[in-house]
């Protein structure tokens, strides 16, 4: 353990791991809340074009990826805002375009090769350079300030956008801020976790935490805790066992998800035993103008967390 800590690259990798473990779930929470769990994945695909552009233009791939990913995230947010009908396909195009663009542009770069891209795709503890770590720290501090400092505001916007607008919050600005923050998080995390699995670290700790929490703040805190544990654990394992860190971290997160799930069963039983009075659960008014209320059998009218908020 101490031996691991004396190597420069490992100190940097562990610091990066902690920051990633904090930021990825802290942002992912809002994406999950709004049913956009997959958005981090899309940003990761787009960021690949940025990485390749960085090689081509001989600038920092991390900064270039941040720029391109942020632009991609803003476009995704604008598509979401416009409405869903054609949005699905537009998003798919953006994802595939980002991936294909990245693979092609790297071929044009004078000293670029697919091998360069591979470490960005799957992550590596060897590649966090001294200059990278400064970038990562600065960006991570920004992400934490936004996701924790504006928790109530972002919660309101992701929980019920229409209501948030009527409170006078700058909803559009907050949505764009969240999109850019998610993009920054992806590029913070990509060196260690890799672009292909970055989204898992945004989503799985949140999914794991919410099995046992009842409030949003507690979910954020627990998800961040889980994120830090799995990124440190995965990075360490990858040092000793020569495993790719990204997949190791994600598998660890999945294992924790399962363990917490097992723990949650008796807990939920106890909670529901005490809340037996809440048996009259059923959906109130279904959206007007759509199907007649009676179409849903009574026993299916339980309120589920996934039920759409939109009226």
């Amino acid at each position: 353990m101490t031996e691991m800590l004396t190597t420069d690259f490992m100190q940097r990798a562990l610091l990066a791991a902690v920051l990633i473990g904090i930021t990825a779930p802290a942002v992912g929470l809002y994406l999950v809340q709004r049913g956009q769990a997959i958005m981090g994945d899309g940003i990761g695909h787009v960021a690949l074009t940025g990485v390749s552009l960085g090689f081509l233009l001989n600038t920092s791939p991390v900064w270039m990826a941040t720029l391109v990913a942020a632009a991609g995230a803003v476009v995704m947010e604008l598509i979401r805002e416009r409405g869903r009908t054609r949005g699905d396909i537009a998003l798919a195009m953006l994802f595939y375009g980002g991936m294909a663009g990245g693979a092609l542009i790297i071929k044009l770069a004078p000293n670029g090769s697919m091998a360069n891209l591979t470490t960005y795709l799957w992550g590596s503890i060897l590649t966090v350079s001294a200059s990278d770590i400064v970038t990562v720290v600065v960006l991570a501090v920004l992400v934490v300030a936004i996701t924790v400092g504006l928790r109530r505001q972002l919660f309101a916007v992701c929980q019920d956008e229409e209501f948030a607008r009527v409170t006078g919050l700058p909803v559009r600005l907050l949505n764009l801020l969240l999109a850019v923050t998610a993009a920054v998080t992806v590029t913070v995390a990509m060196r260690v976790v890799g672009l292909l699995l970055v989204s898992a670290l945004m989503v799985v700790p949140v999914a794991a935490a919410q099995q046992v929490t009842r409030s949003f703040a507690a979910t954020q805190a627990l998800a961040v805790g889980i994120g830090v544990v799995v990124s440190l654990g995965g990075t360490t394992a990858s040092y000793y066992q020569d495993l790719p860190p990204g997949p190791t971290i994600v598998v660890l997160a999945m294992v924790l998800f399962g363990l917490i799930g097992l723990l949650a069963v008796p807990l939920a039983r106890r909670r529901h035993g005490s809340g037996a009075a809440a048996r009259d659960l059923r959906l109130p008014a279904p959206r007007s103008g759509s199907d007649p209320a009676g179409a849903v059998p009574d026993d299916e009218q339980r309120l589920s967390p996934g039920t759409s908020l939109a009226q």
Binding site: V32, R34, A218, L283, A285, L303, P305, T307, L309
Partner: peptide, 14 residues
């Protein structure tokens, strides 16, 4: 107070 089906969303909230 919007017309709606539930106050819940994708993540637990108190």
């Amino acid at each position: 107070v919007p017309q709606r089906t539930t106050a819940a969303s994708g993540v637990p909230a108190s």
